[in-house]
Amino acid sequence: MVFIYENNKQVIVEIKKLMLENKVSQKQIAEVLNITPQGFTKLLNKKNFGFEDAKKILNAMGYNLIVDFQSKG
């Protein structure tokens, strides 16, 4: 999956889409991360959600987080 990064909220939306596509529940990811489902919800909703958070979630789903830079020109 490739998308142009706009903000952290977009990253969360893309993670949720990936969860739906793979039929992975928040509970399943929470179990892999050794946190409660409520803890997972808090992780997704925290104000300073960043790439480390995304990396943890994606790793729990069996994905790598890859960052690429492209010239606008």
Rank of each mutant, 00 (worst) to 15 (best):
D68P: 04
L43A: 00
N45A: 11
Y5R: 08
Q38G: 11
Q28L: 13
K9D: 15
I4K: 15
K46N: 03
N59Q: 13
I15S: 01
M1P: 05
K55F: 07
N48H: 09
N22G: 04
F3D: 11
L43I: 00
V11I: 14
N59C: 08
F49Q: 03
L20Y: 11
V11Y: 05
E52T: 05
N8G: 04
F40H: 03
K17W: 09
L18H: 07
D53M: 09
K55N: 15
I4E: 15
F3P: 09
N48A: 04
P37G: 03
Y63F: 15
K72P: 08
F3N: 11
I4C: 10
G73V: 14
N34D: 10
L43S: 00
F40N: 04
N8L: 07
E21G: 06
F3M: 12
F40G: 00
Q28A: 15
K46M: 02
I12N: 09
F51G: 02
K42Q: 14
E21L: 14
A30S: 08
M19N: 07
I4M: 13
N22K: 15
Q26T: 04
K56Q: 12
K47S: 11
G62S: 01
E31A: 15
L58I: 00
N64M: 06
F51W: 07
F49C: 02
K56V: 03
L65Q: 00
K55M: 12
F3S: 11
F51N: 03
L20I: 14
T41N: 07
V67T: 06
L33M: 09
L18R: 09
E6W: 07
N59P: 03
E14V: 07
M1Q: 13
V32E: 04
Q10L: 15
A60F: 00
M1D: 06
L65T: 02
D53H: 07
M19S: 09
L44W: 01
V2H: 11
L33K: 01
N22W: 08
D53I: 05
T41F: 01
V11F: 08
A54T: 08
I12S: 06
K46H: 02
T36V: 03
M61E: 04
I57A: 00
L65W: 02
L33A: 03
I12M: 08
K23F: 11
D53W: 08
Y5Q: 08
G50L: 07
Y5S: 06
N8W: 08
F40T: 02
V11C: 05
N22R: 13
K56I: 05
N48K: 08
V24R: 03
K72W: 10
K42A: 14
